[in-house]
């Protein structure tokens, strides 16, 4: 029982992290129909920015004030929103009318640029760093002999709040309506008086801010920040991408459903089968979904003429 509850808790926490990251992929795909391969690097930079901000303010020990975490989170999200805005403006916007493959290759280029620029001595460097302990290590409460640490509770609550907010934004606001209109047809949306460039910019900023939240919380949970090109980051981004595809790329609710499915399968597989095989389970689901329901669990299948 204890093990089961522990695994469920791990799945819930990891699923929340995947969901925050997966939403960035799915939002950008929804609006522009392309996979932003640089998204996982925004996650990495979000985590590192949190570390840098902590250092600048001097919150590196365990004695940082209670408001340090939300404050650093807000800074990191803002910094990444700016980064996302800049990436779209400089790298993707000039290619808006270009064939999709060009944009895809550009995204890989941006990804490589961020990974390598992050390793420069005057950026984040190549040495691993310990993420400052902004949240208490103590258990907030105990269920079935399982200690539930503050950080896990904060991750799940934060993800929940951001997801509800995003759901509200997309389906209940004028901006969300504009996003859905652009997603369906950019030209017709422009004829409604929608500033398409602005909607795309906002979408990138929201996705990147969520990525920063995911990256920083990942850092707080696992404690160590590896250099920006490390495969840990790549794998984290890749799994979140798998979550978005499994749920149905372009679908906000699908991304969240996919994220929790992936995380639970990964955690249960690792705990009850083989820990070495955890990535295999994740990509196994991807293959199964692509064979059985290529549009994703909540997505619509589309026929594309070739």
């Amino acid at each position: 029982m204890t093990k089961f509850v522990q695994v469920c808790l791990n799945g819930l926490t990891l699923g929340s992290l995947y969901a925050l990251i997966a939403l960035g992929y799915t939002l950008v795909y929804g609006v522009l129909r392309f996979i932003n391969f640089a998204h996982s690097d925004v996650v990495t930079i979000g985590a590192w920015m949190a570390f840098v901000f902590c250092g600048l303010i001097g919150w590196l020990g365990t004695d940082s004030p209670i408001f340090a975490m939300p404050f650093i989170l807000a800074l990191s999200m803002a910094a990444c929103a700016l980064l996302g805005f800049t990436i779209e403006r400089l790298a993707y916007r000039p290619l808006r009318r270009a064939p999709r493959l060009n944009v895809l290759i550009t995204a890989i280029g941006v990804s490589l640029f961020l990974q390598n620029a992050g390793q420069l001595k005057w950026v984040f460097g190549t040495q691993p760093q310990a993420m400052p302990k902004l949240l208490s290590e103590q258990a907030l409460f105990t269920i079935a002999n399982v200690k539930v640490p503050v950080v896990d509770v904060v991750i799940v609550v934060l993800a929940f709040v951001l997801l509800v907010w995003l759901q509200y934004l997309v389906f209940r606001t004028r901006l969300g309506q504009a996003m859905r209109a652009v997603s369906f047809d950019e030209r017709t949306a422009a004829l409604m008086g929608i500033n398409v460039d602005w909607v795309v910019s906002i979408t990138f900023m929201i996705g990147s801010a969520l990525a920063a939240a995911g990256g920083m919380m990942y850092g707080l949970r696992y404690g160590t920040l590896l250099q920006t090109a490390d495969s840990v980051w790549v794998l984290l981004g890749l799994k979140a991408f798998v979550a978005a595809v499994v749920g149905g790329i372009g679908n906000v609710r699908g991304a969240v459903a996919g994220a929790f499915l992936i995380a639970f399968v990964e955690m249960f597989g690792a705990a009850y089968r083989s820990p070495q095989m955890r990535d295999v389970y994740v990509f196994g689901i991807l293959i199964a979904v692509l064979i059985l329901k290529p549009g994703g669990l909540l997505g619509k299948s589309t026929v594309e003429k070739v």
Binding site: Q177, R180, A181, S183, F184, D185, R187, T188, L191
Partner: peptide, 10 residues
């Protein structure tokens, strides 16, 4: 716009 210029997803 021509016939199909409506948002079919809305």
């Amino acid at each position: 716009p021509e016939g199909r210029g409506i948002f079919a997803n809305l």
